[in-house]
Nucleic acid binder design. Structure first.
Length: 301
DNA sequence: GGCCAGGAGCTTA
DNA sequence: TAAGCTCATGGC
C-alpha cells in the first residue's frame, strides 16, 4: 500500500498526491465505466450516489470543492490510488512484445472499483451495443429512477445516482425499453428482481472463487461469460477475469496468433496461461490498444 | 442503406 | 459442438 498525502486547497478542494502511475482521463474514458463525463480538464462522475469532480494536475489529483472527507475517501478507493500500479505495468511490459507496446500507450490506465449492482446492469446493457449508447441508456435510467446525488459534493446538478435494485424491480419491461434499452430490457428487469429479492447477493460473490461467482452470474438471463467476466473484473476484484469481446478476440488472434481462428474458450485459456493473475489488467491494455490505436488494423480480422 | 457496436440465446445440422 | 439467425437502437 502507498502513503497518500491530502492537501486542502483554499477554495475547498482537496489535492491528493503520492500515488504512482495513474491517468485520470484514460481510466474514466476507456469504456469500463459509463457515468464519467469529461468537461475540459475535469472528469465529472456519479459514484456511490455522490457527484465527483476530479482533475489531474501532474502528480496531483484534485477533488473539486466542496470535497468532504467521504468524497476524498471515495476517490481513493474507486481509483485504487493507495495500490501500487507501476509494478503491475512493469510486469506486463516485461512479459511480451505486445504488452511492451500496449502498456506505454495507456500508461496509468487503472481498473476502477465499481459498485457490483450498477456494473451488472451496465454490462447487461452492453450486449451488442456501443460504449456511447450504453452510457446514454444508463444516464437515461438514472434520470428517470435515480435518487438525487447526496453528500458534500455540488448540489446544483441535474445528474442523479444509479437507481436501486428494488426500484428497477418494481418497473415494467416496457418502461426500461423506453430508455432505449432495446431487447436487453427483459434481462435488466429480471436481474433487478433477483437482486432485490435477495436471491442473488452480489457482495457475497466477492468472497467466493472466481469460478463460482461466474457460475452464479451466468444463471441470469442475458448474462454470458463475457458480461459475467466484466462484472467480476470491474466490480468484484477478480483481477484474473478476462472478458473476451469482439475487440479482445481480434487483438489476441491478430497480435498473438497471426490471425488464426480461435474460440473464445481458447482465448480465455491463453490469457489464463500467459497473463495469469494479471489477465484482467492485460485485457484492459489490449482493449484500449486495439480500439484506440490500431482499429483499422484489426477490423475485419 | 448496410454494417457494426465491450453478446447472448435459441435453432439447426 | 458449432455455425447461423435474431434481438433494438443509433452512428457512421
Amino acid at each position: 500500500m502507498i502513503e497518500l498525502e491530502f492537501t486542502p486547497v483554499d477554495d475547498g478542494s482537496v489535492a491528493i498526491s503520492g500515488f504512482d502511475s495513474f491517468n485520470l482521463h484514460d481510466t474514466c474514458q476507456c469504456g469500463q465505466a459509463f457515468r464519467w463525463v469529461r468537461r475540459g480538464d475535469v472528469e465529472e462522475g456519479v459514484v456511490a450516489g455522490r457527484l465527483l469532480r476530479v482533475e489531474q494536475c501532474g502528480g496531483e489529483l484534485l477533488v473539486h470543492a466542496p470535497a468532504g472527507p467521504e468524497d476524498v475517501r471515495l476517490v481513493v478507493s474507486y481509483f485504487r490510488l493507495a495500490e501500487s500500479h507501476s509494478a503491475i505495468e512493469s510486469a506486463l511490459e516485461a512479459l511480451d512484445e505486445v504488452m511492451a507496446k500496449a502498456v506505454p500507450l495507456s500508461r496509468g490506465l487503472r481498473l476502477v472499483a465499481q459498485e457490483p449492482w450498477e456494473c451488472l446492469i451496465s454490462y447487461i446493457l452492453s450486449a451488442n451495443n456501443s460504449v456511447q449508447q450504453i452510457s446514454r441508456v444508463v444516464e437515461s435510467m438514472c434520470d428517470v429512477w435515480g435518487p438525487p446525488v447526496t453528500g458534500d459534493g455540488p448540489r446544483f446538478t441535474a445528474r442523479r445516482a444509479f437507481p436501486a435494485a428494488a426500484v428497477l424491480a418494481a418497473t415494467e419491461e416496457c418502461d426500461i425499453r423506453s430508455c432505449k434499452a432495446g431487447f436487453r430490457a427483459r434481462a435488466v428487469c429480471e436481474a433487478a428482481q433477483h437482486v432485490a429479492s435477495g436471491n442473488l447477493d452480489l457482495e457475497e460473490l466477492r468472497r467466493t472463487s472466481v469460478e463460482e461467482a461466474r457460475a452464479r452470474l451466468v444463471e441470469l438471463h442475458g448474462v454470458g461469460n463475457k458480461i459475467a467476466d466484466c462484472v467480476l473484473l470491474f466490480s468484484l476484484d477478480k483481477f484474473d477475469a478476462f472478458p473476451v469481446d469482439v475487440w479482445i478476440e481480434r487483438a489476441v488472434r491478430h497480435l498473438y496468433f497471426a490471425g488464426a481462428p480461435m474460440s473464445h474458450a481458447q482465448i480465455r485459456k491463453f490469457a489464463a496461461d500467459h497473463f495469469g493473475a494479471l489477465a484482467g489488467y492485460a485485457q484492459e491494455y489490449l482493449f484500449n490498444y486495439a480500439r484506440m490505436h490500431i482499429p483499422e488494423v484489426l477490423r475485419g480480422h
